[in-house]
Write a protein that binds this DNA or RNA. Sequence first.
DNA 1: ACGGATTTCCGTACAGTGCACGGAAAGGCT
DNA 2: AGCCTTTCCGTGCACTGTACGGAAATCCGT
Lengths: 223, 223
Amino acid sequence: MPETIWFREDARPRRPRLSRERIVEAAVALLDAEGVAGFSMRALAARLGAGTMSLYEYVQSKEDVLDLALDEVIGEIEAPGEAGPWRDFLTAQLTQSRAVMRRHPWVPALTATRPLLGPQAVARSRLFYSALAGAGLEGPVLTAAVGTLTSYVNGFVAAENTWWQKVRTPAADAEIRAKVAGHLDGELARLSQVEDADFDGQFLLGLGLILDGIEARLAGAGR
Amino acid sequence: MPETIWFREDARPRRPRLSRERIVEAAVALLDAEGVAGFSMRALAARLGAGTMSLYEYVQSKEDVLDLALDEVIGEIEAPGEAGPWRDFLTAQLTQSRAVMRRHPWVPALTATRPLLGPQAVARSRLFYSALAGAGLEGPVLTAAVGTLTSYVNGFVAAENTWWQKVRTPAADAEIRAKVAGHLDGELARLSQVEDADFDGQFLLGLGLILDGIEARLAGAGR
DNA sequence: ACGGATTTCCGTACAGTGCACGGAAAGGCT
DNA sequence: AGCCTTTCCGTGCACTGTACGGAAATCCGT
């Protein structure tokens, strides 16, 4: 094969082929596909058609990539068109958060590992602060309320995700459920009975409890 | 060196030197010392003075060890001497849960990864069920209440732990706090001001919100 | 137009990982 | 005495994150 311009493709790129954005985008896709356990820098590079070490031009470590990917998907939660009553607003926002965490099941496990200080995370928590401040909370109760809500969503969806990952089939679901119920005596088992794994309903019920608690605090302050 | 009985120690053990209990105990110690990132089967074996592969006689995988270690420390939460009013009981239990998770900072991150089906975990959740059932809850609201409380503790302490791991010094604390506060406009910053990182107070405040919500539900049912 | 500096890309190498496999030794059995 | 089961573990394999240094391309000052 003759070594001429015709066969020699422009060997080296004039402009960067990689970028932080491209890396983060691919990282999210890889995490969605393989989970956090199957996520490796080599796999990520392969997905981008690049050498492994090229990634390190744009990022200092694997941890960095995870931080960025996390903040990226937090940005998927849409800001509301207009702010209605605080209760509806928060319910809608947290329902969306849950939806995002279900689409990206690796999210709750990661949030439990690192502080959320990225721009999207900060922007989101600011939304919550201003919603509850608008409702009338302030000071420590305000920050506690915001913290409680986000802790709740994270914890709930984390449990939900591990559940789906482990059981997968309705048969396994029934089996585990029966085994755990076996540890309860009859009376308790009767009281705690829930037909199937109604996570949607459970989520809204638990959220309702917290919002009720907040509302009570508002009424108390109003007096 | 002559090869005689006198110098030859009883080469092979007559009874097992390892056991699941010993492994789990060492695993907890290792996790406490090195965190989940520094936890490896080799390090665990070294800590026990054993060969790496010996562990696999008692355990099928690293994941198994983590499951066992997790359930083990959940067992550290003491059952109450006597059951007082449900509110006090739950507050005491959850405060203890938090204390355990602070002593073993790897716990919240692990719970976010796997379903809690070990004996200690099941026993603990049964305690909560019966306490709230005794208070008058039943059906879906009962399970939602239990789920909300455990999600809250996990989420809260997870955030708390990552915070301590990252900031470590009061100076860093102030710096990060200032940086985040910079994203809030003045009015919001004023409203959300909390002197220092008062995690104890925040924890009890948030817990109080949830318990208020539960109490409201009880009052409603009473009517 | 040319020579250096900078940017981007990445092959190689190293220390570490979880665990499959198979062998060796020591009791306990008949 | 012979076998079987239990316990222990050395070796090896595929894979990990990333330090290091080199090669090519572009940019910039002259």
